[in-house]
Nucleic acid binder design. Structure first.
Lengths: 255, 255
DNA sequence: ATAAACTTTGACGCAACGTGAAAGTAAAGA
DNA sequence: TCTTTACTTTCACGTTGCGTCAAAGTTTAT
């Protein structure tokens, strides 16, 4: 079954412009072109679009989606399971907002004061939700619910100074990683410095201050498409390179 | 209790840039300025920001939010109740997406085919949600919660043929309006035909099959900037002209 | 007194399209 | 078979809601 632009747009609830834009940026190419140059979408493209719409619903930017779905190691079933978990998390956030607005209504009806902090408690979670969208799901699967909640708790209690320091470290990691890749040696000084910066960054979120945990997360970086895509923006292969650097740094290279 | 930009940004989980931008566009002005020109936000602004964040969460554009919260008839408690309803609706949409991804997972695991329509069923609702975001809030405040929900219910139950017919009627209205304006006479045959086409179009969305409701909506067309802008694209003054035509058509001209 | 953090205004850049134009193709209607 | 309508192509400008940077001033901490 093949669809034209208009037909697929109607089927999926997007616009024709969206599909042409996705073609233009290489996110979703038509299966084939007709003799006249019309885009025609087949079953593979239909499934691909469904995945894309899930990622979009979860707020992932299009460039990242592109890298994820185009990865040779992309696992559709695994991705669907991840979508499900993140949609559930998104619903929990929405539940918090609904609880907050109900609390606000109740307070107003009874003439009871709500603290300013209470008024924004649910919106404040957005910061964590965005963090969650970037990393939470994978860490949750690998290291369990408790660790992620502890990371979020840490974030909630973090001062702006600490948050900014973590952000700066995050950027430093990327910069150091870029420089280290020029040398090509994951065991070299530059790469080891990137691994150390990464450890410092990690300490903002994690209690697992062990080499094992650090190394395990590093392995996750190439296993999961989103981490891979995030680091590979520095340079293709950066995620793999960082993993190697961290394995050497933690002494876990040969285990 | 007064907050600086930075303090309020942290409290609410937004950025300082966001607050300055909201000041710039007149959406959220600080309560007062310090001697040095620093923005200071008081309790009224805190409550206003909470409302704004609810609207933003619901995807309402900032210009619309501005018009709503600055309206003399703005009712905070009523707005909070509406937020609650719409957040619940948003959760239902999310529930549908979660059910859809679970269905997709189940189908893949069992090697069962899902129809292309099923794959996008939950995303298709986005069309209605966006319609809601564009017009629902205003119509809701003007004509109440129930009418908007009935419009959405009608849309949800509409066949593709009916939707297309409504779309075609929408275009017919614009075409007829364009022709009628050439005559310049809102009471003339051409203008009255445009008013009748509009009534036919309206019947797809509304239960209020009364002249009063039709006339009231017509008045809204020139009072509200978005409706005005939409019709004035045909020709400057088209919204006013259509209002006049509908008032004559419904016999409500002199009331 | 100095440094760091925060503030002001101004301004350019960006993502993800919407919208319009000009010209060609496919499908439906007379 | 011709005409009309609907859809297609590519190209290109516009929009929203900020992010980010710069330059200079103010407030707070050391």
């Amino acid at each position: 079954m093949e669809y034209t632009v208009h037909e697929l747009a109607r089927l999926a609830g997007v616009t024709s412009r969206t599909l042409r834009y996705y073609d233009e940026i290489g996110l979703l190419k038509p299966g084939r072109l007709s003799e006249s140059g019309y885009r025609l979408y087949g079953p593979r493209e239909v499934d691909r679009l469904q995945q894309i719409l899930f990622y979009r619903e979860l707020g992932v930017d299009l460039e990242t989606i592109k890298q994820i779905v185009h990865s040779p190691s992309f696992d559709e079933l695994k991705a669907l399971r991840q979508h499900r978990e993140q949609l559930l998390e998104k619903r929990r956030h929405l539940d918090a907002l609904i609880a907050n607005v109900e609390k606000t209504i109740g307070a107003k009806e009874r003439g009871i004061m709500m603290s300013d902090k209470e008024k924004f408690a649910a919106f404040k979670e957005r910061l964590m939700e965005e963090n969650e969208q970037k990393y939470g799901e994978e860490i949750r699967q690998k290291y369990g619910e408790e660790q992620v909640n502890r990371s979020n708790e840490k974030l909630r209690n973090m001062t702006k100074e600490q948050f900014d320091e973590a952000e700066k470290l995050s950027k430093d990691v990327l910069e150091a990683l870029k420089e280290a890749m020029l040398s090509g040696d994951p065991g070299g000084e530059a790469a080891q410095r990137a691994a150390d910066l990464h450890r410092q960054w990690l300490s903002f979120w994690w209690d697992h201050d062990s080499k094992e945990a650090h190394a395990g997360l590093a392995r996750l970086y190439v296993e999961d498409e989103r981490f891979k895509a995030y680091y590979d923006r520095v340079h293709p292969g950066a995620a793999e390179f960082l993993k190697e650097a961290i394995l050497i740094y933690t002494g876990m290279k040969d285990r």
